[in-house]
Design a protein around this nucleic acid. Structure first.
Ligand code: FES
Ligand code: FES
Lengths: 131, 131
DNA sequence: CAGAATGATACCCGCATGGTATCATTAACC
DNA sequence: GGTTAATGATACCATGCGGGTATCATTCTG
């Protein structure tokens, strides 16, 4: 089981790079070597971050990306939500509709507790912490 | 992201069923309806639990499975380890060999902390709790 | 207008997950 | 001893998805 996937991992590195760079904009070309991933792939990730409002983008020559908020306002949890969907550990293997046990299911209850504590932990990690 | 997969889910239900049944052995045929899964599939799971020493098995007519330990000695963590491998949240996306940053990587550090706390939580949930 | 950058999308591929089928083995019961 | 009911072992299949590439459109600078 992986807590984070590659998208999140690369995003975290790209953002820490940007946070340290302290330039108005950083292009994918400038980041890709440090981050260790191909250009097109990193672009796709950055585009998602852009749509989510975590970075803003400047098109055209001399353009690139820049953080839209302070590094201590971007959490690992946010990246996970944007790049791999909301964290739902306690997904019932059956659809909720089908499963009659859903409300009473003890296992699901236990896992829900674990999930909420885990969420608090990933929400506490910010880009600033990583940079 | 799923914390547990179907195997673990079904195993948990089958074991709680067995814990409540309080019979010398329980056959797959007796469990499959309650657990809500096809016979062959449940058998495969039970066989893994058997290899892992969590249940013991009695072959032949009138046979079946029984818990090898007390329900409060079987944890969710054990089931996860047996049925979906050890929990390693902080798997580096690169191989450890390749990745120079590995030792220093702050993200990996943070995740390692989260992982150890999560492990403690799943180790605290036992079949007895579910039954 | 040319070139450098992102935006949007479509496609591809390998593999883990989830599930089925088949045959072998063992034990109970008549 | 033969039949039947159970597990043991294994091989097979299928589908989704994570991870990655390719392509074209758009926008800005100079
Ligand atoms: S089985 Fe659906 S919630 Fe427990
Ligand atoms: S990138 Fe390999 S450990 Fe951080």
């Amino acid at each position: 089981m992986k807590l984070i996937n590659r998208d999140v991992d690369y995003a975290a590195r790209a953002l820490t790079f940007m946070a340290r760079a302290n330039k108005p904009t950083v292009s994918v070309a400038q980041m890709q070597e440090q981050v260790g991933v191909s250009g097109p792939f990193l672009r796709k990730i950055m585009q998602k971050l852009h749509k989510a409002g975590i970075v803003h983008a400047v098109k055209g020559k001399g353009g690139g990306f820049a953080m839209a908020r302070n590094p201590d306002k971007v959490t690992l949890k946010q990246l996970m939500e944007v790049l791999q969907g909301p964290l739902r550990l306690n997904d019932c293997v059956f659809g909720e509709k089908i499963c009659q046990r859903h409300a009473a299911c003890v296992l699901r209850h236990k896992i829900a507790g674990i999930e909420s504590r885990l969420l608090a932990e990933v929400a506490a990690v910010t880009i600033k912490d990583l940079a």
